[in-house]
């Protein structure tokens, strides 16, 4: 497109992708991961865990939105959520 500038290394730049892993039994429902996720990937589950808390789940339609910033991993007080980088090609 005329007039639109592109970064020179555009072809080699990739956006990291993450896969979310959740340990529902550890969650105490503080919502830190849900509210502070920069991509709004997470939402509260409709189910509850054995302690009665709604744990985080990936929202419908946000399956590919995680960019592996690992903020949820760091901010979760219960060690109940983490992400692993996945290859963009496999998507």
């Amino acid at each position: 497109m005329a007039g639109v500038r592109q970064p020179l290394e555009q072809s080699v730049l990739t956006t990291p992708r993450g896969q979310t892993y959740i340990i529902p039994q550890r969650c105490k429902g503080c919502r830190f991961c849900i509210d502070f996720c920069p991509k709004d990937v997470l939402e509260e589950s409709t189910d509850i865990n054995s302690k009665g808390y709604h744990y985080p789940v990936v929202s419908a339609g946000k399956e590919d939105a995680c960019v592996q910033c690992t903020f949820c991993t760091l901010v979760c007080p219960e060690f109940a959520i983490y992400t692993e980088e996945i290859e963009p090609e496999t998507l």
Binding site: Q19, T20, I22, I23, F79, Y82, I86
Partner: peptide
């Protein structure tokens, strides 16, 4: 498309 969340029993910081 990758799956939604995967439920596991161990955290990667567990060691």
């Amino acid at each position: 498309m990758c799956p939604r969340e995967i439920v596991v029993n161990e955290h990667k910081l567990d060691p």
